[in-house]
Amino acid sequence: MTIRATRTVAALAVLGLGLTACGTDAEEPTSGADGTADGTTDDGTTDDGTTTEDAAAGDSSDGTVTLYSGRNEDLVQPVLDAFSEETGIEVEVRYADTAAMAAQILEEGDNSPAEVFLAQDAGALGAVAKEGRLLELPEETLELVPETYRSQDGDWVGLTGRARVLVYNEDAVSEEDLPTSVQELTEDEWAGRVGIAPTNASFQSFVTAMRVLEGDDAARQWLTDMAANDPQIREKNGIIVADVDSGAIDAGLVNHYYLYELAEEQGVPAEDLSAALHFFPDGDTGALVNISGIGLVGEQADGDAQALVDYLLSEAGQTYFVENTHEYPMVEGVEPDPSLPSLDSLDVPDVDLNDLDDLQTTIEMITEAGLL
C-alpha cells in the first residue's frame, strides 16, 4: 500500500472496527463458498483460464461475483437472491461495516478477491477510488445516474439517495421549536437531548460535508461544542430512532429511512409513530443528501460484476430499494415512496459528493472531540 492508503486504513481502524469488526450495518466478513480468495492462480489466470486483464475488460464470466457489502445482510440479500435467480450468477458476499470493508479492500490491495464494493456512502467509495482500487464504469452505466450522484472520474455511481434529517419526538419537541440548522443543536436548549452515531458512515460523511462547506476549523468547533453538550451516543441510526420514538431521547441526527424501518418493525404506518422527521431548510449542512453506491474493484472485476451493477440500477433493483428501504431511487422512471418529499424539493447543501473522500481527517476530528 501507499503511505496515504496505510494512513487511511489506520484512520478507519480508529473506529474500533478493524478489518472484521461489527458496527452499523455490520457483520463479520465471510469468505466465498469455496473458502478461496477469488479463484485466481499465481500466474494471474482465473479458474476458467481467463486473465485478470480479460476480466477487467468485462468480457469474461465464471458464473460468480464477489461482493464486499457495507450494507447489512437482511437488507441486501433479498435483492442479491433476485439477481441470482434472474441471471444464474452466484453472489459470494462479505458483510461488514462500510468503513471496515473500505479498509479491508485497501489492506488487501491487488490481492483482494473483491469484485464489487457496495458502500453506505460516497465518502467510503471516494476513499477507495482515491487509491486507484476502483475501475472506470461504462458510460452507459454512468448515464443512468444524475451527475450529482456519481463519481466525476466515473468509478462509482449512486444506487439510492439518503437524506440527513433530525428525527424528533412530537410529544417532546413542538414544530415551532425545531432548529433551522444543525448549529443550533450545540446550544444549551438541546443539552442532553440529541442522539448521534459517531461510528456511522453517514454521520462521518455529514461531518466531512461540514468541513467542505464551512472549513475544518468550523467543523472541529461544532464537534467540540456538540461533545460538550452531552450528546446521547448510540451505535446505530436505528437505535436513535427507536429511542426517540419511545421518548428516551428527544431528537437525533439520522438518515430519513430509519423511521420507516421502525414503523415496519412495529407493524404500524410511519405517521402513527411518536417520532417524526424534520428536514433542515435553506441548504443547511444537516440536510445533506448522500448516496449508497457501488463500484467495481480491481482488475479481477469481470462481466458478472458489471451485470450485478446493472441489475441494481435496473427498474427491478431500484424498485426493491424504494419499496423495502424507502430510499430515493437514482434512475429516472422509478417512482420514489409517495410519503416522502420529492428529492428535487429538498433544499440541500451545495456540496459535491466527490469531495467527501477524506475520511481520515474526519475520523481524527471526531476522535479528538471525544465522540469516539
Rank of each mutant, 00 (worst) to 15 (best):
L356A: 04
D357Q: 07
Y149C: 01
Q120H: 09
F280G: 00
Q183D: 14
D225L: 10
T46V: 02
G317M: 04
I366H: 10
S151W: 11
T199K: 13
D110A: 13
D344M: 08
G70E: 01
V76E: 05
E27N: 08
Y95C: 03
L223Y: 13
V297W: 04
G154D: 04
E85S: 09
S292N: 10
T362P: 00
N72G: 08
A301S: 12
V244C: 08
G161S: 05
E140T: 03
N290A: 01
V241C: 00
T367Q: 13
T224G: 06
Y257Q: 11
T66V: 10
D121E: 09
D62A: 04
I240Q: 08
E108L: 09
F279K: 05
D155N: 15
D59E: 14
S274F: 12
G154H: 08
G32F: 01
A99M: 07
E315S: 09
P78L: 05
T51S: 14
L67E: 02
G293W: 11
T64N: 06
D38T: 01
T199E: 13
K130R: 12
G32T: 01
A316P: 00
T30V: 13
A316G: 00
D355C: 01
A127R: 04
T40M: 11
D153L: 14
S339V: 11
L125E: 00
E187Y: 10
I89W: 11
G35D: 07
T199Q: 13
A127H: 06
A305P: 00
C22H: 09
G35Q: 09
I366E: 10
L259K: 14
Y260P: 00
N237R: 05
T224C: 04
E53P: 00
V289Y: 01
E189W: 03
G88L: 02
A102Q: 04
D38C: 07
Y95D: 10
N111F: 10
T361A: 12
P336V: 05
T362V: 11
H256E: 12
A307S: 13
L343H: 12
L253W: 15
T40A: 10
A82G: 03
V297M: 08
D110K: 05
V289S: 00
S339A: 15
P146E: 06
G286F: 04
A11H: 12
V194N: 07
E139R: 06
S112H: 03
N111G: 14
T361P: 01
A276F: 12
D74M: 04
E265A: 09
A57C: 02
D34H: 09
L259G: 02
S339M: 11
L356E: 09
D355W: 05
D350C: 02
T24K: 03
A100T: 11
I89R: 11
S60E: 12
D357F: 09
Q77F: 02
E299D: 14
L144R: 15
D38S: 08
E327N: 10
P269T: 09
Q120K: 03
T40Q: 09
G195E: 07
L15G: 12
